[in-house]
């Protein structure tokens, strides 16, 4: 798979990554190589094979009792936040 610069710009946008012009050609090249490399999977015969999402078969989701176990610790948790006002996380205006 050979990606164009436009493809990579689209992917970077979807992933919310700013990529500089200089980086763009490097990524266009390396992502194309990686995709070509993984395309060898296409040759594998996986006709009726079930996809595997978890390494351990037969395990199923455990269910937790409906109990409140947490207390308010927003000050501790917000000590890592870049911008907080009145206990809210502050971001540039959200336009709906």
């Amino acid at each position: 798979m050979s990606l164009t610069r436009k493809d990579v710009e689209g992917i970077a946008h979807l992933a919310r990554l700013e990529i500089t012009d200089a980086e763009m050609s490097v990524y266009t090249d390396s992502l194309s190589k990686i995709l070509s490399f993984v395309e060898q999977l296409g040759a594998a015969d996986t006709g009726s094979i079930e996809p595997m999402a978890h390494p351990l078969e037969g395990e199923s989701q455990r269910l937790r009792p409906d109990e409140v176990t947490e207390t308010d610790q927003h000050e501790k948790y917000q000590s890592n936040a870049p911008a907080v006002a009145s206990a809210l996380y502050v971001v540039p205006k959200v336009i709906e």
Binding site: Y89, V90, V91, V94, E96
Partner: peptide, 12 residues
């Protein structure tokens, strides 16, 4: 997202 009381910003 709350928009009141913040200038050009939203509070989450």
């Amino acid at each position: 997202s709350l928009h009141e009381g913040l200038k050009n910003a939203s509070g989450i």
